[in-house]
């Protein structure tokens, strides 16, 4: 049963998927710090307001995974911002997140060399994101 994207239930499912991944813990053993995703509004695709998602990662463990407000999102070590359609492309692996960043389709605040050094961890959590059975706001509602 697909879960509505970018809801708390969806965040819980994403967190559980990361925790269940057999490779994640080892890959992320050096990662320290929270990541927030900011989804720019797109009313035409049923995203009327910006959405803020906060995820806490620490040495292979995962902490808070919450839908949050702007203030909490801005407090993350890394803040990635993009249009809704781009995030959906990333989740579906139609657009690699690193390429999206380099092409300016996503923006990031944070320590870029740290991300580069830990690119395998970044790729892993994006790969897991694609595994969450998701109903996107502009998908046909059943």
């Amino acid at each position: 049963m697909p879960i509505k994207a970018m809801t708390q239930e969806w965040m819980d499912a994403y967190k559980a998927a990361i925790q269940a991944d057999p490779e994640y813990k080892g890959l992320a053993k050096d990662w320290e710090g929270s990541v927030s995703l900011v989804v720019n509004p797109d009313p035409a695709k049923n995203v009327p307001e910006p959405i803020y998602l906060f995820m806490d990662y620490w040495h292979g463990d995962v902490g808070d995974f919450v839908v949050c407000d702007k203030e909490k999102a801005d407090s993350a070590k890394f803040v990635m911002t993009g249009d809704y359609a781009r995030w959906k492309q990333v989740a579906y692996k139609e657009l690699d997140a690193t390429k999206a960043l380099l092409q300016g389709k996503l923006k990031m605040k944070g320590d870029l060399p740290y991300v580069v050094r830990n690119i395998k961890t970044v790729n892993k959590v994006i790969d897991i994101l694609g595994r969450v059975d998701t109903l996107w706001p502009d998908d046909d509602h059943k």
Partner: peptide, 15 residues
């Protein structure tokens, strides 16, 4: 490698 995408210049994909 996706460092740049210029579909306005010639037919190409982002990825």
């Amino acid at each position: 490698q996706g460092m740049a995408s210029w579909p306005q210049l010639f037919d190409m994909k982002d990825d």
